[in-house]
């Protein structure tokens, strides 16, 4: 009924209408299918097979997943990567997003001079290539001639210096913080935009009600930007569990030292494509890729069905 009305409204008969629909939808559907749906399905499909020496494939059901989760040779690296990935994510949530929020709050202060300059500078690293970021930070942190060491020495804190990227207990944190440094501009810009959308009169009303700037931020502005913070968190989650490039660029595919910076992305890379003595194993690689997909999917579902339903969006 509604359909027919719509067709009448655009003044076409049914088949002409369908042709027009197809004409406009086809490019998007084709491209999306070719580059997103097909690879995803093929990956899931592959993960159900076992590859024998010589290349023959046999159906293995969920056997690969069982191997991945329980067989010592696979499960140890898997759980290690998952744990590291979680730490990577937690550091982003605890550092990148609060810092992004704080920067956004500072940027939205009217008294602040050079606001646009700060905004551009802070956003800049996000637009740089990861290879450049990795290279720059390796130079900065180099134990031989890095300026970090000189800087610490200059202020008398030389004892704090260590070969951060080369120690098992510091490498992951260091890499995480470099990634935070690179991407902090994104939460900042998203939250800054949300803050700008809050009318000034609302803050004026809070001021008349006796709140200072700081309190107005926590009691009035912050509750209004929870939806944006939720969105930033889920974007962080997806990006973190898909991360690969920074670690590959700085620590190599082996994600050293001793796999202490190994995350899902690097584990997948070594498994699927092979590395040094390890042969590439497409079906096991697909199994890991499918696990990554499932993990991200679960994260998204938690966001959509638990978090997003509790936070309310406001229009002004």
């Amino acid at each position: 009924m509604a359909d027919n009305q719509q067709i009448e409204m655009v003044g076409m008969n049914r088949s002409a209408y369908l042709r027009v629909l197809a004409f406009f939808l086809a490019p998007a559907v084709l491209i999306y299918t070719l580059f997103s749906v097909y690879p995803l399905l093929a990956t899931i499909f592959d993960s159900l097979y076992l590859r024998h020496e010589g290349g023959a494939l046999t159906f293995n059901g969920l056997g690969n997943f069982q191997t991945l989760l329980t067989d010592e040779t696979w499960s140890k690296p898997f759980w290690n990567a998952l744990r590291n990935n979680l730490i990577f994510f937690i550091i982003h949530m605890c550092v990148q997003n609060p810092v992004g929020l704080a920067l956004a709050a500072l940027l939205s202060l009217k008294q602040l001079a050079f606001r646009n300059t700060y905004r551009t500078l802070i956003f800049m690293p996000t637009m740089l290539s990861v290879v450049i970021i990795g290279f720059i930070w390796q130079l900065i942190l180099s134990p031989l001639w890095g300026i970090w060491k000189m800087g610490l020495n200059a202020v008398g804190l030389g004892v704090l210096f260590g070969p951060y990227l080369g120690q098992e207990h510091t490498a992951l944190i260091t890499i995480s913080l470099i990634s935070v440094w690179q991407f902090v501009g994104i939460p900042m810009i998203l939250i800054y935009t949300a803050l700008l959308a809050i009318p000034d009169e609302l803050v004026d009303a809070a001021t008349v009600d006796g709140l200072n700037q700081w309190q107005a931020f926590f009691h009035v502005k912050l509750p209004l930007i929870w939806p944006t913070i939720g969105l930033v968190s889920v974007l962080t989650f997806v990006a973190n569990f898909n991360a690969f490039d920074l670690i590959y660029a700085m620590q190599g595919a082996l994600a050293g030292p001793n796999f202490s910076t190994d995350i899902m992305g690097t584990l997948f890379y070594r498994t699927f494509f092979g590395n040094q003595l390890q042969l590439g194993d497409p079906t096991m690689g697909s199994t890991i890729a499918t696990m990554m997909f499932v993990i991200i999917l679960m994260g998204l579902l938690v966001y959509l069905y638990v978090i997003q339903r509790r936070i309310q969006r406001y229009s002004f």
Binding site: E201, D204, A206, T207, V208, D209, V220, Y314, F316
Partner: peptide, 28 residues
């Protein structure tokens, strides 16, 4: 402002969107 014993009604009303009517009125 809060110490001046004034109250202001704004053109856009400036009600706190995240609070119900009761909380809005009692917030100050």
């Amino acid at each position: 402002p809060a110490k001046r014993e004034i109250a202001m009604v704004f053109q856009s009303y400036a009600l706190y969107p995240h609070m119900d009517v009761e909380k809005n009125m009692g917030f100050g």
